[in-house]
Computed example of a mutant assay.
Amino acid sequence: MEIVVAGRHTEVPERFRRHVEDKLAKVTQLAPLAQRVDVEVTHENNPKLSDVRERVELTVRAKGPVIRAEAAADDRYGALDLAIDKLVERLRRSRDRRKDHRRSYVLAPVDVRPYDAVKDVEPEPAEPSTSLVADGEAVEHQLGDSPVVIRQKLHSADPLTVDDAIYEMELVGHDFFLFIDKESARPSAVYKRKGWTYGVVQLDQQCEGLLPVSELT
């Protein structure tokens, strides 16, 4: 399993890289088919955020859904421990999921909010008209003379059922997930709500080239 450690606004010493490799040894036990783990270390320079100035993000890539966890603390070693605890919990959930696919959820419509999935590529400043062509590619541009920065990112999207979309949302640790509904062929979003309830929003348009399951049977 390949482990790739990268720093954002910070240098990552060799000692920490070796520590990461040792701590991630348990990943191979829970995810034997994992091909790669991306580790991103971010340093926050704002003194008001000293308690969470070090952030560690872990992303496990294998055949199947991406599994991700992140945490922040006042030092990167503590942040790594917290992130690994979250990652192990999600890896166990994924393993259990493979054993039993029968799960149920309470669904209700909710409002749309922006969603930013797993960070695959460091965004680069770009013009608003820039076209994204590669999976994981990301760009940022400033809105005119205002301080508003808009980030665009491209993700591959295989059609999913609502159940699978909720499952993948939980694995990346977000409260929002965009997907194409396999049943209706519509662009859709699932959300976390209070307790163990979830929401689903769909656009009243079908993705070009896809047919709803009802029309295929």
Rank of each mutant, 00 (worst) to 15 (best):
Arg61Gly: 02
Gly173Val: 09
Arg53Leu: 00
Arg103Ala: 11
His174Thr: 15
Arg68His: 15
Gly173Glu: 07
Ser129Met: 03
Val106Cys: 01
Leu49Thr: 10
Gly136Asn: 07
Arg55Asn: 09
Lys99Cys: 00
Val121Met: 14
Arg102Ile: 09
Glu124Arg: 11
Arg95Tyr: 01
Glu170Leu: 11
Thr59Phe: 05
Pro47Ser: 11
Glu137Met: 13
Pro114Asn: 05
Val148Cys: 06
Leu160Lys: 11
Arg92Thr: 14
Tyr105Gly: 03
His141Ala: 14
Asp163Cys: 04
Ala83Tyr: 07
Glu137Pro: 13
Gln152Tyr: 00
Arg90Gln: 09
Ala62Arg: 13
Asp51Arg: 15
Asp75Ala: 04
Asp75Lys: 05
Ser146Met: 00
Arg113Cys: 01
Ala73Thr: 12
Thr59Asp: 01
Arg98Ala: 05
Met169Glu: 05
Ser94His: 15
Ser104Tyr: 02
Leu87Ala: 12
Ala157Asp: 12
Val118Ser: 11
Pro109Met: 02
Gly78Pro: 00
Asp51Gly: 13
Gly64Lys: 04
Asp111Ser: 14
Val172Leu: 04
Arg61Phe: 09
Pro109Lys: 00
Ala157Trp: 07
Pro147Cys: 02
Ala69Met: 02
Thr59Arg: 08
Glu183Asp: 14
Val139Ile: 03
Val88Asn: 06
Val149Glu: 14
Lys182Gly: 01
Glu54Met: 04
Val112Ile: 14
Glu124Leu: 11
Ser129Ala: 12
Arg98Gly: 11
Arg55Lys: 13
Leu49Arg: 15
Ser129Gln: 13
Ala138Trp: 03
Val66Pro: 04
Tyr115Thr: 15
Ala117Pro: 14
Arg151Pro: 11
Lys48Val: 03
Asp75Ile: 02
Ala185Val: 00
Arg53Phe: 05
Thr161Pro: 01
Val66Leu: 08
Val149Pro: 08
Glu183His: 12
Asp163Trp: 04
Val139His: 06
Phe176Asn: 07
Pro128Phe: 08
Asp74Glu: 05
Leu154Pro: 09
Val56Asn: 01
Thr161Arg: 06
Val110Gly: 09
Ser156Leu: 09
Lys119Tyr: 07
Lys63Trp: 05
Ala117Phe: 13
Glu183Ile: 08
Ser156Phe: 08
Leu143Asn: 05
Pro123Trp: 02
Ala117Asn: 05
Ala83Asn: 03
Gly78Phe: 04
Glu170Thr: 14
Pro47Thr: 04
Asp100Gly: 12
Glu137Arg: 15
Arg186Asp: 00
Asp164Glu: 15
Tyr77Cys: 04
Val162Lys: 12
Leu91Val: 10
Asp175Cys: 06
Tyr115Pro: 02
Ile150Thr: 15
Ser50Gln: 15
Val60Leu: 10
Tyr115Ser: 11
Asp158Asn: 14
Ala72Lys: 08
Thr161Ala: 09
Ser104Ile: 10
Ala79Trp: 09
Pro47Cys: 09
Leu132Gly: 14
Tyr115Asp: 07
Ala117Asp: 10
Tyr77Gln: 11
Asp145Arg: 00
Ala83Leu: 07
Glu57Ile: 01
Ala126Phe: 06
His174Asp: 05
Ala83Cys: 09
Phe177Gln: 03
Ala83Arg: 01
